[in-house]
Write a protein that binds this DNA or RNA. Structure first.
Lengths: 133, 133
DNA sequence: GTACGTGCAAAGGTTTTGCATTACA
DNA sequence: TGTAATGCAAAACCTTTGCACGTAC
């Protein structure tokens, strides 16, 4: 998450509200989550503006688009390399604030230039374990 | 990929065609890819049947639903634990036929019960590197 | 003042669903 | 024969787009 001082993007009240909602947010919200939260204060807010802003931020590398949830995109204001813990029951996503140094195993296509990696741990979160019992 | 001998699912000609198309397939096809390929031989095949079959196979753990491509699901008949190499340019997905033994870093939520992990390497494939130059 | 953002509605793409018909087991 | 799958169309979602209007810079 960068600050408002960044140039290159017009800072409208709607965008400031989205930036403020995302700042420090660890819920990995979907566009709808963002829309719902901000509509309370901005009744005229539209989905087009949410997507417009998210795509502008994505292009500027100020937000990550996560492809973790089948059916919808999730957004992450934490642009530091990190990984995720995903509850297979409730779909909650938790950050793992650490990067893994991984190499391709021997025998894998070495002609691929690796830019980054992303690790997903799938499991069951504490609160779903309680519900289960 | 299991064999046709599996019980618990009715084997219609359409399903046999889908199973045969998926068997050994390393392209991680989308539902549309499957539909297009099979429509050639089954002109009456419908999307409903493709999704119905894929969801039945998924439930039986005979196919994996990959959430790697934003906007659409991809399907993988390889149900052995393995990982993926993804070209950020052409979106090609290649298998890494090896599982990684990874532990949660210290300080991470230990109350999560880990069931499995999935590693994605993002990079540029050989053929996109050539196009680039 | 101008380029860019907003908001609305419509359209586009993917997946699911309802229902009458068909066919596997 | 009975249960489950098929196929079609419609609907449900999520995301993008076109366009007239408004506003940050």
């Amino acid at each position: 998450m960068k600050t408002h001082r960044d140039l290159g993007i017009k800072l409208t009240p709607q965008r400031l509200a989205i930036l403020s909602y995302l700042d420090g947010n660890k819920d990995h919200p979907s566009a709808e989550d963002i829309y719902k939260a901000i509509s309370k204060k901005f009744p005229t807010m539209s989905f087009a503006t949410v997507y417009n802003t998210l795509n502008a931020l994505k292009k500027r590398n100020s937000v990550l688009e996560l492809t973790i949830d089948p059916g919808k995109k999730r957004y992450d204001p934490n642009i530091e390399p990190h990984n995720h813990l995903i509850c297979v029951r409730c779909k909650q996503i938790e950050d793992i604030p650490v990067a893994f140094q991984l190499d391709l195993p021997k025998g894998t296509n070495r002609d691929f230039t690796i830019l980054r990696n992303h690790v997903e741990f799938h499991g069951i979160c504490p609160s779903c374990k309680i519900k289960q019992s």
